[in-house]
Measured scan of single mutants.
Amino acid sequence: MVVWDEDGFQGRRHEFTAECPSVLELGFETVRSLKVLSGAWVGFEHAGFQGQQYILERGEYPSWDAWGGNTAYPAERLTSFRP
């Protein structure tokens, strides 16, 4: 999975191949867009795999509404991930 700290695949970029309990440890404040290259990941609103969670299947997510636009409580950012 590849993530960016700005919408539209802009800004700082990082690629994950294993779980990440906090993007803050990588110098990111948040993740605002992402691409899942294969498989599925779970993205969490807060560090430590806490808060609202989203199943992220293979594909592109250019902004928060692409992963959470249909929920009652959409998270505008993700800060931890698990494959």
Rank of each mutant, 00 (worst) to 15 (best):
M1V: 13
V2S: 04
V2Q: 05
V3P: 01
W4V: 00
W4E: 02
W4H: 01
D5W: 02
D5K: 02
D5N: 09
E6Y: 02
E6A: 07
E6D: 05
E6F: 03
D7Q: 12
D7R: 07
D7P: 15
D7C: 11
D7V: 14
G8P: 03
F9L: 00
Q10R: 11
Q10A: 06
G11M: 00
G11T: 00
G11P: 00
G11K: 00
R12G: 07
R13I: 05
R13S: 11
H14N: 07
H14V: 12
E15C: 13
E15L: 09
E15D: 07
E15A: 09
F16A: 04
T17H: 10
T17V: 13
T17C: 10
A18P: 05
E19M: 08
E19P: 10
C20E: 05
C20Q: 05
P21A: 15
S22E: 04
S22Y: 00
S22M: 05
S22F: 02
S22N: 15
V23C: 07
L24E: 08
L24Y: 11
L24V: 13
L24I: 13
E25H: 08
L26T: 02
L26Q: 10
G27R: 02
G27P: 05
F28L: 10
F28D: 03
F28T: 06
F28Q: 07
F28M: 11
T30S: 09
V31L: 03
V31W: 03
R32Q: 03
R32I: 00
S33F: 01
S33K: 00
L34F: 11
L34C: 15
K35T: 05
L37D: 01
L37C: 06
L37S: 07
S38E: 11
S38L: 03
S38G: 11
S38M: 04
G39L: 01
G39S: 05
A40S: 12
A40R: 15
W41A: 01
W41M: 00
W41R: 01
W41T: 04
V42H: 05
G43R: 02
G43A: 14
F44Y: 10
F44L: 03
E45V: 05
H46P: 01
H46S: 09
H46W: 08
H46K: 07
A47F: 06
G48H: 12
G48V: 05
F49L: 01
Q50F: 07
Q50T: 06
Q50V: 14
G51C: 07
Q52E: 09
Q52A: 13
Q52T: 10
Q53D: 12
Q53K: 09
Q53E: 07
Y54G: 02
Y54P: 00
Y54W: 14
I55R: 09
I55P: 07
I55W: 05
L56W: 03
L56V: 02
E57N: 10
R58G: 10
G59W: 03
G59V: 01
G59A: 05
E60Y: 02
E60I: 09
E60S: 12
Y61D: 07
P62D: 04
W64F: 09
W64L: 15
D65A: 08
A66V: 11
A66N: 08
W67L: 15
W67P: 05
W67T: 06
W67F: 09
G68P: 06
G68D: 07
G68F: 08
G69R: 07
G69N: 10
G69K: 14
T71R: 10
T71N: 13
T71G: 13
A72E: 12
A72N: 15
Y73K: 08
Y73M: 08
Y73A: 13
Y73D: 05
P74A: 13
P74W: 12
A75R: 08
A75Q: 10
E76T: 09
E76C: 14
E76M: 10
R77E: 09
L78C: 04
L78M: 08
L78I: 11
S80F: 01
R82S: 07
